[in-house]
Amino acid sequence: MMPIVIGGVTLASKKWGNLVGGMIASLPWIAGPIMLFFTLEQGVDFTVNSIKGVMIGIIGVLAFCFAYIYSAIKFKWYLSLLLAYLAFLTTTLLLNCIEALMGLNAWFASTIALSLIGLGIFPILEKKASLNQTLKYDIYLRMIIITVFVALITYLAKILGPTWSGILTPFPIITAILSAFTHYTQGAYGTSIILRGMLTGFIGFASFLYLQAILLPIYPIAIAFGLGFLVNILLNLLMRFLVKRFAK
């Protein structure tokens, strides 16, 4: 599934633009399958207990996005990626220290609030001359990287436990792949557009996770995931409409 997802997101970005590509990428393509395997292999309780960690992970991805775009203005993709991952790790480590102090409702509210604030203050860069660089076999490289990551996280779940498995579920792998490849081929401007698209989708993503904590203990997996995915898509469309409206 993962090669198909990253390949599809890449083609969507090329066809409909980076903003749409970023929004599509923010859907739970990675978190959904990982949580599905958590549920099947470790049980519903493990998955529900991991969701607070996933919320922490989303806040870490927000930090990743800001660190990457501000770094991309001055630095090349590899240094920007390194600084962004440092921001993610620092944020999640600090938040993990206070994870037990707040319940799921508080973490969900915090994630929504920070996502809205982040979207409102995310830098809008001036469009410059397009680099128009190409990278041979870029889609295949993306497919390999994302598949290895998903397999690794699900394999390590028993060792890591629910909290750290949750934190690493939204680990910015698809974000990193899209950021680095776009930065290399289109520069900082193109990267800012795709990251802004991802931020637009974080509200729906967080809502998908919150619904799993409510629905999984009650309903079959297919219903819980189906309803959550539907809500995620509807919220993404709503956020896209609002972003376009306020941008005018």
Rank of each mutant, 00 (worst) to 15 (best):
L119M: 05
L119D: 03
L119Y: 03
G120W: 07
I121C: 14
I121M: 12
I121Y: 13
I121S: 13
I121L: 13
I121V: 15
I121W: 13
I121R: 06
F122N: 08
F122C: 07
P123Y: 05
P123V: 04
I124N: 15
I124T: 14
I124L: 14
I124W: 05
L125N: 04
L125H: 01
L125Y: 01
E126W: 00
E126M: 07
E126D: 12
K127V: 00
K127N: 04
K127I: 02
K128D: 13
K128S: 10
K128G: 14
K128W: 01
A129H: 11
A129R: 10
A129P: 05
S130N: 07
S130K: 06
S130P: 00
S130W: 00
L131P: 01
L131R: 02
L131I: 00
N132W: 00
N132S: 10
N132A: 06
N132L: 08
Q133F: 14
Q133P: 00
Q133C: 09
T134G: 14
T134Q: 15
T134V: 13
T134N: 13
T134F: 09
L135W: 09
L135K: 04
L135M: 08
L135S: 06
L135H: 03
K136V: 10
K136T: 11
K136L: 09
K136F: 10
K136H: 11
K136P: 05
K136N: 12
Y137I: 11
Y137G: 10
D138A: 14
D138I: 09
D138E: 15
D138S: 15
D138V: 13
I139H: 04
I139P: 04
I139G: 04
I139C: 04
I139K: 06
I139V: 11
I139F: 07
I139N: 07
I139S: 05
Y140T: 13
Y140M: 14
Y140L: 15
Y140F: 13
Y140A: 15
Y140R: 11
L141D: 08
L141E: 07
R142P: 03
R142M: 06
R142H: 08
M143N: 03
M143G: 09
M143T: 03
I144V: 15
I144Q: 12
I145Y: 09
I145P: 06
I146F: 02
I146Q: 04
I146D: 02
I146W: 02
T147P: 01
T147Q: 03
T147I: 00
T147N: 01
T147Y: 00
T147V: 01
V148H: 08
V148C: 14
F149C: 06
F149Q: 05
F149R: 09
F149S: 08
F149T: 02
F149K: 08
F149P: 06
V150P: 02
V150Q: 07
A151Y: 05
A151G: 12
A151Q: 06
A151T: 03
L152C: 06
L152M: 10
L152I: 10
L152F: 09
L152Y: 00
I153E: 05
I153W: 02
I153L: 12
I153K: 02
I153V: 14
T154R: 03
T154Y: 02
Y155I: 12
Y155H: 14
Y155S: 14
Y155N: 11
L156H: 00
L156P: 03
L156C: 04
L156W: 01
L156V: 05
L156A: 10
A157T: 06
A157N: 08
K158W: 02
K158N: 12
K158R: 03
K158Y: 07
K158T: 12
K158G: 09
